Computed example of a mutant assay.
Amino acid sequence: MNSRVLVLNQDNSPLMVCSVERAFILVFLNKSEMVRASNGYKLHSVSKSFPMPSVIRLNRYVNAPYKGVNLTRQNIFKRDNHECQYCGTRKELTIDHVTPRARGGVDTWLNLVTACKKCNAKKGDYTPEEANMPLRRKPHKPSYSIFLKDHMNGQAGEWDSFLTGHHGHH
């Protein structure tokens, strides 16, 4: 069972995605309440069955440090929509340092973009300005809730209202 559960902070803001087991323990320890059971599934314990959580909310506010989205190739591609940030192609993608490594460019969200091998080679050790290859979009540090959406699979509908920022009173 590898269903994922969306964990909301006490103020209903998305906090993290965790496994059903972990969510279940949080609920069981009374650290959270079940907001919505997933499609009516049940988790069975020895003596009674519990609804399987899809969304849970913590009972007390957790001051979560910014949940960083890991800086990985895949996540940069994802942020950039799997498109070369110079020409827009989706073929032969790699990662480009906006300010080249050779010039002190570092590995950060703001200095790494998706580029196709052709543009990457063409740009070489130049900045976009010098190479006259303007970036289509300014690189940014993605927000965690955007990435939470990747875990949704079939649960999209159940989580949408929580991730879009419309927190109705449930």
Rank of each mutant, 00 (worst) to 15 (best):
M52Q: 13
S49C: 11
G165C: 09
S45R: 09
N30F: 13
W159P: 00
R137W: 08
V62C: 11
S19Y: 01
V62Y: 12
K91Y: 02
S47G: 11
T114F: 03
L29K: 13
H140L: 09
T127H: 04
V5A: 11
M133F: 04
K123V: 07
Y41A: 12
G88A: 02
M152A: 15
P100E: 08
K123G: 03
M16T: 15
S49F: 09
R101M: 07
W109I: 01
A156F: 10
C119M: 10
A102G: 09
L58A: 07
L8I: 00
T108E: 03
M1R: 05
V113M: 07
M16G: 00
P139I: 02
P53I: 00
E158S: 11
V62R: 06
T72Q: 04
V46M: 14
D150I: 10
C87E: 01
N70G: 13
K67S: 06
N132D: 08
K138P: 01
V69L: 01
R136D: 00
L110N: 12
C18E: 03
S49D: 08
K31Q: 12
F77E: 02
V113Y: 01
E129C: 03
N30K: 15
D107S: 15
K48F: 09
K67D: 03
V27F: 06
V17R: 01
S143D: 15
S38F: 00
A37W: 00
D125W: 09
S161Y: 06
P100S: 11
V113W: 02
K149M: 15
K118H: 10
K117Q: 07
K42P: 01
E129L: 11
E129N: 08
S38A: 14
P128A: 11
F24K: 14
Q10Y: 09
R90S: 14
C18N: 09
Y126W: 12
I25H: 14
F24R: 14
P51S: 15
N132Y: 02
M52F: 01
T127K: 06
P139G: 11
G40P: 00
E83A: 09
A131I: 11
D150H: 04
G157D: 10
W109D: 03
C18G: 04
V7T: 07
N75W: 01
Q85F: 02
S3C: 03
D150R: 06
A64V: 10
K42R: 13
S13M: 05
L135K: 06
N120D: 01
K118Y: 12
S19N: 10
V55C: 04
G157T: 15
P53Y: 01
F24Q: 15
A121C: 07
M1L: 04
V55A: 04
M152R: 12
H44S: 05
K117H: 08
T94P: 05
A37Y: 00
F28W: 06
H166C: 10
A37D: 05
F24E: 09
D107K: 02
H169T: 04
M133L: 14
N81K: 14
P65R: 14
D125E: 13
W159L: 03
N75S: 07
G157A: 05
L8H: 03
A37V: 03
A102S: 15
V5G: 04
N153D: 12
P53R: 12
V55E: 01
C84F: 09
H140T: 14
D107V: 06
G105L: 13
E83Y: 14
Y86N: 05
A121L: 12
